[in-house]
């Protein structure tokens, strides 16, 4: 049905490109017809009954069995449910913290959404602290809400953090490349330097290595390999390994 879509996988598309659903001309009554479904990721929208519209410019990607999306090099983050982000506490008012996540609105984080927090036992959070949290509510109609516990009530790596490290911003594309299951960037970095890295899907990275110099090296390397192809990046890492350390 969406063979037109499959053909264009790996090609660059611009907003306004459309794909039409083809109805097969003859329906076979003897074979069972399986409904074919397609899962649309970012950059693709359904238009009317039979058409798909491309709304962002980028490369069309496909993941088996039926997921399609448009990959682009965007810098601005839009909150989405379930994503883990690094936020900065801006306001501490009563029971709720306001957190800046880089989106169009500040997210709210309740003080009870931390592991082991009760009304008597409040978490130690100050304005300006970094917090690693997950979106429990994030859609265009409502104010985004963050929680620092997973559904079982455990922290699972989330919560307040940040002493001694450096926070910096990169593009969303690099974040996705770092979070891939077998990420090249991450493995190259691990071979180079031992360091602690927190990856927020809102484009923010936090790094801490054994010394200030090494932390600066890590942050500069990651910021520069944003727009590099794998061979260029490996060359850069090799130069860093020889020179700086």
């Amino acid at each position: 049905m969406f063979s037109g879509l499959r053909e264009k996988v790996g090609q660059v598309l611009v907003p306004g490109d459309e794909f039409c659903l083809e109805i097969p001309e003859t329906l076979s009554l003897s074979e069972p017809m399986k409904p074919e479904k397609v899962l649309l990721g970012p950059g693709l929208k359904r238009k009317g009954d039979r058409k798909l519209l491309v709304v962002k410019s980028g490369v069309l990607r496909h993941k088996q069995p039926h997921v399609f999306w448009v990959e682009n090099q965007q810098r601005r983050y839009v909150p989405a449910r379930g994503e883990t982000v690094i936020g900065i506490i801006t306001v501490k008012s009563g029971d709720v913290f306001k957190v800046d996540v880089g989106g169009s609105e500040q997210a709210s984080l309740s003080y009870l959404a931390f592991e082991g927090a009760t009304k008597r036992n409040r978490p130690n959070v100050q304005v300006g602290d970094l917090v690693f949290a997950q979106f429990s509510v994030a859609n265009q109609h409502m104010e985004p809400e963050l929680v620092c516990v997973d559904s079982a009530g455990r922290a699972n790596g989330m919560g307040v953090f940040g002493a001694g490290g450096l926070l910096f911003s990169v593009s969303l594309g690099l974040i996705r490349r770092l979070l891939r299951p077998r990420s090249d960037v991450l493995s190259d970095l691990q071979k180079l330097l031992p360091c602690e890295l927190v990856v927020g899907m809102n484009g923010r990275l936090w790094a801490r290595a054994s010394s200030v110099q090494q932390t600066l090296v890590v942050s500069n390397l990651l910021q520069s390999c944003d727009t590099m192809s794998p061979p260029q990046r490996q060359q850069l890492f090799r130069r860093a390994a020889q020179g700086a350390l």
């Binding site: 907003p15 306004g16 929208k45 709304v55 962002k56 980028g58 965007q74 810098r75």
Partner: peptide
């Protein structure tokens, strides 16, 4: 607008 990744329905 294309560079910023804002959703557009046509150019």
């Amino acid at each position: 607008l294309m560079d910023a990744g804002l959703p557009m329905n046509c150019l």
